[in-house]
Design a protein around this nucleic acid. Structure first.
Lengths: 129, 129
DNA sequence: GCTTGCTCCTGTAGTGACTACAGGAAGTAT
DNA sequence: ATACTTCCTGTAGTCACTACAGGAGCAAGC
């Protein structure tokens, strides 16, 4: 049974974030010592680590919580995990496409910009439309 | 001089968003009619449209405001516009790279997931680390 | 025994860029 | 006169934290 600072170090999740997850019901409330301080088990740290990894993969906190629930069930519901992940992959791809579109538009707008220009073609273009 | 609803229609910026931009000092406070309703000029609508386009290109509201200020100056400071845009392009590319990294990681994690699996290799992988 | 410094506690407010009301007043159409 | 629409102000909610404020407890050194 370790304190929150140690749980934070072991999981890589910030102390304030751990307390936030608890408030939001993402992780169960941990045990408390006689002095009211939170006490974490290795399993609690495992939960935090799973959340950390899911967040690093870009899952929303809600989806990360779903992953955690799936892992907790012990049934290891592979199809559900796969569906969640594939939905997320689709979302990531959608974002990539959108950003590439933006990049192309920005490139096009700056194409005619030169340091010597008296009036800016990009501004002109932005003000038209 | 048009009302806020019409300015919203002409610019594509939502009514609540227009009032938000005013509150935040992004656009100047418009004229008011005797009945206290906001009155917008064609120039006001032009400002909103420029903001709209910058936001659609992914610029932060702060950067969009800078663009607007550059356009207002009339000097059409092309180098400044170009610098802003190129900084933003770099940011967009950074995001694309990051998302591609995420996608690859997700693909790798789901690669061994099959509907028939008893235990989920993705969950197992996520819980290791 | 006392001070210093660390960790912990609760509760609140701030971030970005809106969006969604609540509750009311004024204008327009029938 | 009534119904409908638009407008007003002000506040709270979104997401996922992050940053305090203000206090309590505990360990180590003097």
């Amino acid at each position: 049974m370790i304190a929150i600072g140690e749980a934070s170090r072991q999981s890589g999740v910030g102390i304030e974030t751990i307390r936030y997850y608890e408030r939001e019901g993402i992780v169960p409330k941990p045990a408390r010592a006689a002095n009211n301080r939170r006490l974490y088990t290795a399993r609690d740290v495992g939960r935090l680590r799973l959340l950390k990894r899911c967040r690093a993969l870009g899952f929303s906190l809600a989806d990360a919580k779903t992953m955690l629930d799936l892992a907790e069930q012990g049934s290891d519901d592979c199809p559900a995990v796969k569906a969640l992940a594939e939905g997320h992959i689709a979302e990531v791809r959608r974002k990539i496409t959108e950003l590439e579109r933006l990049e192309a538009a920005l490139q096009e707008l700056t194409r005619n910009c030169a340091s010597g220009n008296v009036s800016c073609p990009m501004l002109a273009e932005l003000q038209d439309a």
